[in-house]
Amino acid sequence: MGAGTDEADEDRPRALVVDDEREVADAYALRLRGLCEVETAYGGEDALRAVEDHEFDVVLLDRHMPGLSGDEVLERLDEGDFDGRVIMVTAIDPGFDVLDMPFDDYLCKPVDREDVRAAVTHQCTVLGYEVLGDYFGVESKRRVVEAELSTEERASHEEFGELQATAERLERRARRLLGDAADALDDFDAIGRESE
């Protein structure tokens, strides 16, 4: 498993490329450089460990792997608390939409640079707006609680602490997923707080 070394990747979406063929996984990882922070896993078990250790926004999952297959990994991710998006990398392209599929998108091997970048960008945008929605919900609640508490009370208030941490985490994630498109966040922040 290799971590991206580019410092600038820190503020970018996080992707995990899973393929039992190291050559394929590495090739996709390089194609995503500059777009996101990429890690690679060379098998289903490796992939599950990586997801446990780090938060990933998008997983590129090779469907047919010996041992734990892509479909089995997907099943485990769904059972766990993984909340990112999954792009299945398949051997065939039947031309189906993904409406009732258990994954969010699929790409047919071999995947060229532009296609994989476009697919990942698209999933990051969709996830970004989802996270943004969650953030607005949590942040509104946090402000309501904040308005009801004095500065001293806030420091020891458990619920407020949790809301604060969640809001910060969601804001960071939405910003890294949406990049410049996260302007809505600045507009939201610009709305004066009720207590001030």
Partner: peptide, 23 residues
């Protein structure tokens, strides 16, 4: 060999096979 792409197979079965990863 490839149910998802097999034109002779009715589409509901092909879609389901593709969704399930049954090839």
């Amino acid at each position: 060999q490839s149910l998802g792409e097999a034109d002779a197979v009715p589409e509901p079965i092909r879609r389901a096979a593709f969704a399930d990863g049954v090839q």
